[in-house]
């Protein structure tokens, strides 16, 4: 049986980001991309599930960067059996989560998986809408903020994080969609020689997909957050600091 992992590349914020002269996009020549870290955890969780059950992991991604191959080859090197890349008119755009879900659904339906995993959120999906939107479009059950899962006798148990340090364990009917917060263990290391071997021997399946409608939000202006105010470190005895705090709160009309 099949487990699908949906993976996305996002700008690497270790490198300094720059805004393109147009003022409506990042300077793409200066941007490097990394796999969304939650997607990396989704892949790890999928591989752990598949190792226990003998399922086949298929990595699927939409190539908006032109550089998705690297991420998919790494997924293959880690243990995914197939990798599928969706290409189309969207290269160089920031797809909306809804548009991404619409593009992914036909491929997922064709693969007939019993489980779809993706990262709980991404820098361009801070609300974590991809997993629930996929589930809604597919008509399947869904859980997000997942921190562990297991497939026992065809039943899926997932542990998800709630609030205040609480977790919840629930059972889902299959097929289902999971938004993964963290895999049971840290994403594995795959040596570069294995990645390079996979790049020589494996093939990424490419699907050119038709697009229609609004794919991306219209960006009017992109800018860096402006620096506002500065932190002041209060020093002195506890009572001096307390006096200073009261003074500051009074000055702002809060007391």
């Amino acid at each position: 049986m099949t487990i699908v992992v949906v993976m996305e590349q996002v700008p690497d914020v270790v490198e300094e980001l720059a805004i393109a002269p147009s003022g409506t996009d990042l300077d793409r020549d200066a941007v490097s991309y990394v796999v969304n870290e939650y997607d990396d955890h989704a892949l790890e969780e999928a591989l752990l599930l598949a190792e226990a059950t003998g399922d086949e992991v298929v990595a699927v991604g939409i190539d908006t960067t032109g550089e998705l191959d690297q991420a998919l080859y790494t997924a293959l090197a880690k243990g995914a059996r197939r990798a599928i890349k969706l290409t189309g008119d969207f290269e160089g755009t920031w797809l909306s989560t809804r548009a991404a879900a619409r593009l992914l659904v036909p491929v997922i339906q064709e693969l007939e998986p019993r489980l779809v995993l993706t990262g709980v959120q991404a820098p361009d999906d801070l609300d974590g809408q991809l997993a629930p939107t996929l589930a809604a479009l597919l008509g399947w059950p869904h859980a997000s903020v997942v921190i562990g899962s297991q497939l026992v006798d065809g039943a899926l148990q997932v542990r998800k994080e709630l609030w205040g340090g609480m977790t919840m364990t629930l059972e889902l009917e299959l097929p289902a969609v999971l938004g993964v917060q963290a895999a049971r263990q840290a994403p594995r290391y795959v040596p570069i020689s294995r990645v390079r071997q996979v790049m020589r021997e494996a093939t990424i399946e490419t699907r050119d997909v038709e697009t229609s409608g609004d794919l991306a939000p219209a960006i009017m202006r992109l800018r860096f957050p402006e620096e506002a105010g500065q932190a002041e470190i209060l020093t002195g005895s506890a009572s001096e600091i307390a006096d200073r705090i009261i003074e500051l709160l009074r000055a702002r009309g809060l007391l």
């Binding site: 040596p191 570069i192 020689s193 294995r194 990645v195 390079r196």
Partner: peptide, 9 residues
Amino acid sequence: AGERGLFEM
């Protein structure tokens, strides 16, 4: 450390 492939790259 064992990463011959990384070294070659």
